[in-house]
């Protein structure tokens, strides 16, 4: 389990603190008291993570191979890969996989691109920069459940979105019934998801931008580099780590699509917006099939691992 969504923690640990002078004293002897108080300080967080992350993860892994139900008089039995056989034979599962891929393929590039554009717009200090930073971040602090409810209202046939479209086109466009049409339901969910979450990744890009030394830009300007060349040869290479972080976090967030679907469409119309997690919650919670839901969760987890491993490989530093 050395794969994490944050780039190379091990390497960062080895980095000396930037403020520390190079002449660090040689490693101190490891006093027993330091060991004991150190572990005492780590223990509360470690125990809680063990109890509420590691244990349920292992438990879920085990339950996927049984017939466990949330409430059942029958004893739990080991059933091998029955749940997986059933899952892979279920057309709704494949549909949910397709929907989530569709969602991710659009959301990952568009959201990270918009977030980068927003970060570039508010990177330099100017009058009112805090105002824009706050406004851009406002959708992020609004709960996804509230956002979904609000957009559910705006996406009605006679809702705000269609009225705005109509006004902008001088009455030429009369929009569809967004969430009740299998062709437009997913694009509608994609739009609101990007609207809600882009501000969060803007902040991550901003962190990357702020870590690029201003001297590099001054040097580039002395060499007569244009704005585009400065972006291409100073900004972009300076964002290598940030790029991986943004890419991996948006992808994981996209694959885990749930809240919007749960509030707005319940997977419909005609399964056009159902997702892997929505199916897991539906079977695990509504139909109380804990084991089948655990199998779906396990498949989802393996998928997330695989995709983030591939992304890390593709965006690795080539040196």
């Amino acid at each position: 389990m050395t794969t994490t969504q944050l780039p190379s923690p091990g390497r960062r640990l080895a980095d000396p603190a930037p403020a520390a002078p190079p002449s660090k004293p040689r490693r101190r002897p490891r006093h027993l008291r330091e060991q004991i108080s150190g572990w005492g300080m780590i223990a509360p967080a470690a125990v809680l993570l063990l109890a509420f992350v590691f244990l349920p993860a292992i438990l879920g892994f085990g339950l996927a191979f049984t017939n466990a139900r949330l409430v059942s008089p029958r004893p739990v039995e080991f059933v091998g890969t029955d749940n997986f056989a059933r899952l892979f034979a279920d057309p709704v599962f494949w549909r949910s996989l397709l929907n989530v891929s569709y969602f991710a393929v659009v959301v990952v590039p568009v959201q990270s691109g918009l977030a980068l554009a927003m970060a570039l717009l508010i990177n330099k200090k100017f009058r009112g920069v805090n105002f824009f930073r706050t406004i851009y971040f406002l959708p992020v602090v609004t709960s996804m459940v509230v956002v979904s409810l609000l957009w559910l209202f705006m996406y009605r046939k006679d809702g705000l979105i269609n009225e705005l479209l109509s006004a902008a086109s001088f009455g030429l466009i009369s929009g569809p019934d967004w969430l009740n049409d299998p062709a437009t339901a997913m694009p509608a969910i994609i739009a609101l998801s990007i609207w809600q979450a882009a501000g969060f990744h803007m902040i991550i890009w901003l962190a990357g931008l702020q870590s690029i030394s201003g001297e590099l830009y001054e040097a580039a300007q002395l060499d007569g580099a244009s704005r585009w060349h400065q972006f291409r040869y100073v900004t972009w290479p300076g964002l290598t780590h940030t790029r991986t972080l943004v890419l991996v976090t948006i992808t994981i967030q996209a694959l885990g699509l749930f809240d919007q679907v749960s509030v707005m469409t319940q997977g419909g119309p005609l399964d056009s917006t159902t997702t892997i997690i929505y199916e897991a919650v539906r079977s695990g919670f509504k139909q109380q099939e804990t084991s089948y839901a655990s199998a779906i969760s396990l498949v989802f987890f393996v998928l997330v691992l695989l995709i983030s491993a591939v992304q890390r490989y593709l965006t690795r530093e080539k040196d």
């Binding site: 389990m1 944050l6 992350v53 993860a57 919650v281 969760s297």
Partner: peptide, 15 residues
């Protein structure tokens, strides 16, 4: 500890 970041909460919720 950092490895726990890759486990989405939704997959843990049911167990």
């Amino acid at each position: 500890i950092l490895a726990t970041l890759i486990v989405p909460f939704q997959t843990l919720a049911l167990p």
